[in-house]
């Protein structure tokens, strides 16, 4: 089995790496793929709560690399989707509790079992970042349409390229198309102009992301959420399907409105 190991990174904190990892991973599992989400944000574990799996965790990534448990024991099964697993970060350890070498070995083990290994990278460019990219062969950079985020994305792209990643791909998150339209937020083209890397997807600013995080149910499982729809497209593109990139345009088709009504009536 040929597996894909994709690290989701950004440089700047809080731009949506964990949200992106959870949603792409869940969307891939919805397509019947065998997926593991690897939280490498040691000390600041979050992917478990975003996935709604916090109560099921017994062992974590540090336990695995220290041989305190078997890999299988630390793989937490998702509550909805067959074939979706989480390997949680340790909450009480330091970022240095795992080395890049150990990470590589761990990922090699996971490759035997999973088609997709998504690595949620911590913010920053220090050891946590080094660990997260160690075993990955593809990189996705998440950026929001703000100066500081795009600047950090540029830095990360440089570091990724220096580490041998040929073509990191970009996800623009939290785009507000109305603001972009009136010229108060950088648009897709502005950002691509500056970063000149391939665009993998665009995710709109969406209140539902907060709701979904509250519930521990990634937005892709919701039929109305725009961010969810955008992430489902990203997942399909990752599997090689030729789907158009969401561009932030309001889609107020009849179907969409109907779905909203149904949702409200529920």
């Amino acid at each position: 089995m040929e597996s894909k190991v994709i690290v989701i990174t950004s440089g700047k904190g809080g731009v949506g790496k964990t949200t992106t990892t959870a949603n792409i991973g869940t969307a891939l599992a919805m397509m019947g793929k065998k997926v593991v989400l690897l939280d490498t944000d040691i000390g600041l574990r979050n992917l478990d709560v975003v996935m709604g799996l916090e109560n099921r965790i017994v062992f974590d990534i540090v336990d695995v690399v220290n041989n305190n448990c078997k890999l299988q024991q630390a793989l937490t099964k998702d509550k909805r989707y067959e074939g979706l697993y989480l390997l949680p970060a340790a909450q009480t350890k330091e970022k240095t509790a795992v080395s890049p070498h150990q990470m590589k070995n761990l990922i090699n083990e996971l490759k035997k079992e999973f088609e997709f290994i998504l690595v949620d990278c911590p913010a920053g460019i220090e050891q946590g970042f080094r660990n997260a990219i160690a075993g990955a062969d593809e990189a996705v950079v998440v950026a929001t349409p703000e100066i500081s985020s795009v600047r950090d994305a540029d830095r990360i792209i440089g570091l990724l390229e220096a580490s041998g990643f040929r073509e990191p791909k970009l996800i623009i998150n939290r785009l507000r198309s109305k603001m972009a339209k009136r010229g108060d937020m950088m648009d897709i083209d502005d950002i691509l102009d500056i970063l000149s890397i391939e665009l993998l997807g665009v995710v709109p600013e969406d209140e539902y992301i907060v709701v979904s995080t509250n519930r521990g149910e990634p937005a892709v499982t919701d039929t109305v959420s725009k961010a969810g729809a955008a992430y489902r497209r990203v997942a399909r593109r990752i599997t090689g399907q030729d789907v158009e990139i969401y561009t932030g345009e309001e889609t107020s088709s009849l179907v969409n409105r109907f779905m909203k009504m149904v949702k409200l009536a529920r």
Binding site: I147, R151, D154, R155, G158, G183, D184, D190, D193, I194
Partner: peptide, 22 residues
């Protein structure tokens, strides 16, 4: 000038420097 154009121009300049000093 649109604020996004200001942002873009500032970014362009800061990145010339960033990229060189990487």
């Amino acid at each position: 000038v649109n604020s996004k154009d200001v942002a873009k121009e500032r970014l362009r300049l800061v990145l010339v420097h960033d990229r060189a000093s990487v």
